[in-house]
Amino acid sequence: MQTIHVDHATKRFGSLEVLKQVDFRLEQGEFAAIVGPSGCGKSTVLRMIAGLDHPTEGTVSANQKPIEAPHPSRVLIFQEHALYPWRTVEKNVAFGLELAGMPKKECQNRVDALLKKVGLSGFQSYYPHQLSGGMRQRASIARALAMDPEVLLLDEPFGALDAITKITMQNELLRLWEGSGKTVLLITHDIDEAIYLADTIHVMSPRPGVIVETIRSEVPRPRNRNGADFVHLREKIMTHLDLAK
């Protein structure tokens, strides 16, 4: 298991400063979220942890070792376009295992079990374009889980879904995470989503991206989206984002 440490990371693209002195820790097994408006650089934080980008200053490390390149123990789930259109659902889910050279039989068993877990049993031979948005994202999650990663990085995973499907998927995600011991970092612009799912919420403001506040949520699960403490937390986050009246 690994602890991720984003240590005073600054990221510049040319003269544009995207992130400034971002500093936080991701403890083992915690469900954390970064919430902020589009373009505030929160995806860049995620990409740095995934090993796809590197900070201009500061470090991003896993267990005190700087993250240089992607590693299957830290899997990133993208918002969309993430399934290969030429692969069936089961081939998509098996992709990471195939890259690692897992024997076919073992691979098949693992994929079938995972598809069952995410509610996609029977859709093995479907192509992504035959599925609804929610089902595609389920397949994406199954593909990430197939790697049995220690850290799951979710980049606005439900951003493209309709409001009702989104709520269902949030509950599914919680069900999959609870008791798994996996560390999850969720990036979202949906304040309610962050409060509903995460225990630690980093509020980020844009230009350049800085974490303005880190909130430890004490709201007991299952969380009531209309409960007093939920609403209070929402108001607090909105104030930090200059959204409160």
Partner: peptide, 14 residues
């Protein structure tokens, strides 16, 4: 080639 497709493969260890 779709950038996300490439990055995804890299994340999964390609």
């Amino acid at each position: 080639v779709n950038r996300t497709h490439l990055e995804l493969a890299r994340v999964l260890g390609a």
